[in-house]
């Protein structure tokens, strides 16, 4: 099948390193996850007070989306940008924190992050994305499923561009791997395929 569909930019954050288009753009290994996330925020000089209120899952996903979209020059109507994400641990990282607070008096600001799709909400609020979105739970990254979901949205013209991928946090284990998929070429673009998603997702560098 001839395709004009590309991953125009990718961002991966794992093991203390931020990659953009498979190149390391920032590294700060051997730090705890909260400190690492803050260092990424500071390094890229992001200015977004809501960041400090987020749980680690939302912080990770939000940072990955910021690095992804930085300089991406999205020319689409924000209502036409879709977000399709998945992970293995849902919001468990924050659920474990929340459950400890119940006895002393539950906090609504912790409870609200006990849903995996809140990270999508945060990305949508930041970018004014109002389109299609979905959060799926998978034991491991299923590039075939994501590929199918994104193609449906773009084939049916339900979205002009789609941010898709994986955002997962549990304790000190974390990984974000996001792809911006568009029907256009770009400088570092690679063809949107299950192979390329898996290659980027699994790359060590």
């Amino acid at each position: 099948m001839i395709t004009n569909r590309y991953i125009t930019v990718s961002c991966k954050i794992a093991t203390g390193v931020v990659h953009k288009d498979m190149k390391s753009v920032f590294a700060n290994p051997q730090t705890s996850l909260p400190d690492f996330l803050l260092s990424v925020y500071q390094y890229f000089a992001f200015s977004y007070p809501k960041f400090y209120k987020m749980d680690n899952l939302s912080k990770l996903g939000w940072l990955a989306s910021e690095v992804l979209l930085k300089d991406a020059g999205l020319k689409f109507d924000p209502a036409q940008v879709a977000v399709v994400l998945a992970n293995a641990n849902s919001s468990l990282d924050n659920d474990l924190k929340y459950v400890k607070t119940i006895a002393e008096g539950a906090s609504p600001s912790v409870f609200v992050y006990t849903l995996p799709n809140i990270v999508i909400g945060e990305i949508c609020i930041r970018n004014n994305f109002k389109g299609e979105h979905a959060f799926f739970i998978q034991d491991k990254f299923d590039e075939n499923f994501i590929f199918q979901q994104v193609n449906y949205l773009l084939d049916q013209q339900l979205a002009s561009a789609c941010i898709c991928g994986w955002v997962d946090v549990l304790g000190d284990n974390y990984k974000a791997s996001l792809f911006l998929v568009e029907d256009k070429q770009a400088d570092n673009a690679v063809v949107f395929s299950t192979e390329n998603m898996a290659k980027i997702f699994n790359s060590i560098n």
């Binding site: 849902s90 468990l92 659920d95 809140i118 979905a134 799926f136 739970i137 998978q138 549990l170």
Partner: peptide
């Protein structure tokens, strides 16, 4: 426990119970 609480685990157990051949899909969007 972390694995047991995962919706992916529940979906797998339920799908296996009924002998679905395909891997189940889990939607969790509030």
């Amino acid at each position: 426990l972390n694995e047991r609480v995962s919706l992916a685990t529940s979906a797998k157990l339920i799908a296996t119970h009924f002998r679905f051949k395909n891997k189940p899909i889990v939607v969790s969007n509030a």
